[in-house]
Write a protein that binds this DNA or RNA. Structure first.
Lengths: 301, 301
DNA sequence: AAAGTTGATTAATATTATTTATCAATGTAT
DNA sequence: ATACATTGATAAATAATATTAATCAACTTT
């Protein structure tokens, strides 16, 4: 089949109007060039050059072919350029998934950082349940996800980021409001508001206090903020990850109380397809999260 | 270096999203395709495909590259198309040279014929002296020439077309006007008007009657018609090739008289560069001239 | 006439592409 | 769970192709 080398040959001859000089320009010997051109002419069943002793001239059809061949070669060069430009893994949109109990609190922290460390990488963020994030990761709908461990999927890979403890959240006039700490077992006596079991965070809470699986009040919806507001409205108490209980989220109508040691914990990780190639984007996200260095997040090496 | 095969490979994989099917489509085995793609990725230092077990997906840069690669392949296909279209040698302008003593009489005859047998071949006609036509042929300024023999030039080739006799042309009141034929030697007694010696026809006449080289009246200018008009004006007599003495060129003021046998003759031929590739155009011209079949032109096999 | 061009040709060689056979990883069906 | 099928990658052997070195014939120039 026609080769790019052959196209280079004919363009060179068209420029030089001399086989030997053209061959030199192409860094091959003259016979190599002659044979290549003959092969092309044979394939196209067309004479491109009129060979005289004095000089080489283009046939009419030859001129047309040379023009098109030059275009091909330019387009090929453009492929190399594109590859060069696009080599920067931190360029181009990154599709990031997060579980609902992390997204609202982590995202505002890392976005300003990433805007500096990866300015050409717009984020397309999706909040969803762990199970959906997993499927989306596998299907390439998202590239990276922030989830809670455990998270073992054959084709996916993860890296643990940090541990965070849970806090108890009660209305300001609740009888626990002045307590300094709570034991997990005590929760079973209270009306505890939780998201439905699709949410890994709820499962982690019920794991810490198994009694709740029977007594806890299960809510539809995806937002911990809804629950926080319900607590403020005196409809019950709840448990939140401490990233959600930072002062900046404080509400005068609620009180945050830590668990008695050992407090229940969850481990947050970043996950991606094993085959995902833009590994630098992951490094940058990991760096961004580490850079937050809040005291409620126990960073992992 | 990047090859068109590799570009075909990646485009096929991008379409099929499966290496084996893509390989089949390219009529190669799967390893050949895999290696080819790896080679390309290595050369560009870029990952084009994310390889999963489930499916193959394009990286962002990969999509860009595929797009450009498709363009290249289309442009390559276009080269083949162009070659196919342009293969018709009878398409495109043909640059035709003719000597002055042939052009005005032959051209009007063959143009209507060629317009039918080679409708897509416009003629660019140039009238000139044999010596100039020869140079123009060699330099590619013209492609084909109609000249009189002899015409032996190393890099050029010719084919004899026809012989034509010469006629004597005298004013209607000339003392030869009633003669049925003239002997060449008799010309030396008369005032014979001829073109200058750059014109092969004049040389052929003086060759037939050597005396003329001393006595003939030599005119500047390139047109036999000027001479015919001068004869009509009683300024002398002349000799014309019989293609120029056909009835259609008749002038009531002149009389055409044949030479006594053996009449002087010239042989007309068509010439071209040995390296000229549009040989069909020459065939068509030869055919056109043969098709004239006038009795004053002795066609040659 | 001699020397120096030109592109073509040939046979030997180097390089490259392709295949065959196989693997490890992973998914699917039973 | 276990067997089976499918994915793309890999290694070694082979086939195909491109390239070179050496030479030629045709022609021009000196």
């Amino acid at each position: 089949m026609m080769s790019l080398t052959e196209l280079k040959f004919i363009v060179a001859v068209a420029q030089e109007r001399n086989f030997r000089r053209a061959a030199e320009k192409c860094f091959v010997t003259q016979p190599a060039l002659s044979l290549g051109i003959k092969k092309l002419e044979l394939e196209l069943n067309v004479t491109i050059f009129e060979r005289n002793r004095l000089d080489v001239t283009l046939t009419e059809i030859g001129a047309t072919i040379i023009e098109q061949a030059s275009k091909v070669l330019e387009d090929v060069a453009r492929i190399k350029q594109l590859a060069e430009l696009g080599k920067n893994q931190l360029k181009g949109t990154l599709k990031l998934g997060m579980i609902h109990s992390v997204g609202p609190y982590l995202l505002p922290e890392i976005i300003p950082i990433l805007r500096k460390t990866a300015p050409d990488m717009p984020l397309e963020v999706e909040e969803n349940l762990t199970a959906n994030l997993e499927a989306q990761l596998r299907n390439g709908i998202i590239d990276v996800a922030i989830i809670a461990l455990p998270f073992d999927v054959p084709s996916l890979q993860y890296k643990a980021l940090y541990d965070e403890e849970f806090d108890v959240v009660v209305p300001i006039n609740h009888h626990w409001a002045t307590r300094k700490q709570i034991n997990a077992q005590e929760l079973s006596d209270e009306k505890v508001l939780l998201l439905n079991s699709g949410h890994c965070f709820s499962n982690q809470v019920t794991q810490a206090c198994p009694e709740l699986s029977r007594k806890g009040e299960i809510l539809q919806g995806n937002s911990l903020e809804t629950i926080r507001n319900m607590v403020a409205s005196n409809l019950g108490i709840t448990v939140l990850p401490c990233s959600a209980t930072a002062e900046r989220y404080n509400n005068p109508l609620i009180k945050v109380i830590p668990f008695a040691s050992p407090a229940p914990t969850r481990r947050i990780a970043i996950a991606w397809r094993k085959s995902f190639v833009r590994v630098e984007t992951i490094e940058k996200i990991v760096d961004a999260i580490r850079a937050i260095r809040s005291d409620y997040m126990k960073m992992l090496a």
